[in-house]
Nucleic acid binder design. Structure first.
Length: 496
RNA sequence: GGGGGUGUAGCUCAGGCGGUAGAGCACCGCCCUUUUAAGGCGAUGGUCGAAGGUUCGAGUCCUUCCACCCUCACCA
């Protein structure tokens, strides 16, 4: 049967049910119990109490004058028993017109079948929503990766594990919020549409405001706005921010993604290390109930303290390179040795160092591990290291060879910040599309004085991937970006 | 952007060296009043991703294109 006939079949049934006088899309239904509650409270309810429940019909086993069916609600599933003698002639005939996927409300008494399954013996039922499109295979579910993303609702109906992943995502976010709020952090909201972008090294999305007749950028990070709030006297702030970066997409990158950024006045990057360690442990304890994190057959132990290794030391150990004393040309040569196809001619010093590190070192960082004290070229918004002017007080946290957090002692010297911006602008003008533009308004804010501050950004989607064992970022974002689909309208509308 | 893979019924998948398109589930009909992916009998259902080409003949071979997946490049 082709889709059109299957759909038309269901529309015909819908009309037949209506013609008998039953409502097909009513306004409301009163439930007394969820599926799970009926199972949990079965001893109090059995064979005596009339309960009502509602959900989507997922299986029907018809046996002539009596039938079993399973409905699913958010809590789980419950079996229903429809018996012609109990329901009467007309309702039982209506029941025969139901399809898998319909949403129904039922009323009846819980009992246990011969085989021991808790079941509602239906006295009365209502159709709450008639489904006119068939679900996927009842046993195999929905496998097609593309359809799973495009029609996430169908994925959620058919594949119960998917629901669990997103429930865990939600729990992780609450755990995070609770953790920060308990420590006096205030959740804030800052602009997504920004006249200037900044706070990270990435290419932005550009959009246009008609009334102002100006281009606006979708934010690539919140950093510069949150620091303005620190200037304004909020000592501890965080934001759960959707950021947008106009770059490649793959297993660990979606154009829009979620970052948790937080800033704490009178702290430095050492405090941030302690904080993220406690925060992730809290999530692990609350959401996983374990401090072992297993991802794709690799297990890591989150028991603190997590090792700290400095950036230059790791570069020396794994690449044999002394990042600080090498000149640009020497760095270029080293990079050529690691990857001869790479075009290094347009790379500035920051890019060269960054490239070397990710080629030679990253693969060793199973984690949890803090990489500390990055070269100054990589970190235009970070305070110079208190013991070494070529370094900055910055760290990245790695789990399973991937960066999941990035933090610094925030640069609060407005004059030095201006110089760093000038360098970025030079790189921007020489073709580095990821360098940052000058932000005079941000500099003006710093000139009023920002306290010493520790700040951090946490790649939330990746953290969810690792906690839930999902291989792709697309599995932890409800509606990941895909190319638009070509749509054919249902046949009955095609002529109009 | 480079390389590799996938695309066949509503869903999940088979289709050897080119010879009339297959299964399970779903759907439809009949039987069945405690089933468990209920069962039994029967029927329907296809622009084989799209467009070209080779051939007497293409799901199968060739070319181009589209979408998705993996991988590399780039980034977070």
């Amino acid at each position: 049967m082709d889709l059109h006939s299957l759909r038309q079949d269901r529309i015909d049934k819908l009309n037949e049910i209506r013609s008998i006088g039953w409502e097909v899309y009513p306004y409301k239904f009163n439930r007394t119990h969820t599926a799970r509650e009926i199972v949990e409270k079965f001893d109090e309810l059995a064979d005596s109490v009339t309960v009502s429940a509602a959900g989507r019909l997922r299986l029907i086993r018809r046996m002539g004058k009596a039938s079993f069916a399973d409905i699913h609600d958010q809590s789980g599933k419950i079996q229903l028993y429809f018996k012609k003698d109990d329901l009467g002639e007309e309702p039982y005939n209506i029941f025969k017109l139901l399809d898998l996927g319909d949403i129904i409300g039922v009323e009846g008494v819980p009992f246990r079948t011969r085989t021991g399954e808790i079941t509602i013996k239906i006295k009365r039922f209502e159709i709450l929503s008639k489904s006119i499109r068939p679900l996927s295979d009842k046993w195999k579910g929905l496998r097609d990766q593309e359809m799973r993303c495009r029609q996430r609702y169908l994925d959620l109906i058919m594949n119960p594990q998917v629901r669990e992943v997103f429930i865990m995502r939600s729990k992780m976010l609450s755990s995070c919020r609770n953790f920060l709020e308990e420590r006096g952090f205030l959740e804030v909201e800052t602009p997504i549409l920004q006249p200037l972008y900044g706070g990270a090294l990435a290419r932005p999305f550009i959009t246009h405001h008609n009334t102002l007749d100006m281009n606006l950028y979708l934010r690539i990070a919140d950093e510069l706005y949150l620091k303005r709030l620190i200037v304004g006297g909020f000592d501890k702030v965080f934001e759960v921010c959707k950021d947008f970066r106009n770059e490649g997409m793959d297993r660990t990158h979606n154009p829009e993604f979620t970052m948790i950024e937080l800033y704490e006045a009178y702290s430095d990057y050492n405090d941030m290390m302690t904080l993220i360690q406690e925060m992730i442990l809290r999530m692990a304890d609350e959401v996983l109930g374990s401090r072992q994190l297993t991802y794709q057959d690799i297990s890591i132990d989150l028991t603190p303290p997590w090792p700290r290794r400095d950036y230059c030391g790791l570069a020396k150990e794994y690449a044999g390179i002394d990042v600080l004393s090498y000149g640009d040309e020497e760095l270029r040569d080293c990079l050529k040795k690691l990857n001869r196809d790479l075009d290094t001619s347009k790379m500035n010093r920051g890019k060269l160092i960054d490239e070397l590190f990710s080629k030679a070192v990253e693969e060793h960082l199973q984690g949890p591990i803090f990489i500390t004290d990055f070269p100054i070229e990589l970190s235009p918004l970070t305070k110079v290291h208190r013991n070494n002017p070529k370094l900055t007080e910055r760290f990245e946290l790695y789990l399973f060879k991937k960066e999941v957090a990035n933090a610094y002692s925030e640069l609060n010297d407005p004059l030095e910040q201006r110089e760093r911006f000038v360098q970025q602008v030079r790189w921007l003008e020489s073709g580095d599309e990821e360098a940052q533009p000058m932000d005079e308004d941000f500099l003006r804010a710093l000139e009023y004085g920002m306290p010493p501050t520790g700040g951090m950004g946490i790649g939330f989607d990746r953290l969810v991937m690792f906690f839930t064992g999902q291989p792709s970022i697309r599995d932890v974002i409800f509606f990941p970006q895909l190319r638009p689909e070509e749509f054919a309208a249902p046949e009955e509308f095609e002529e109009e």
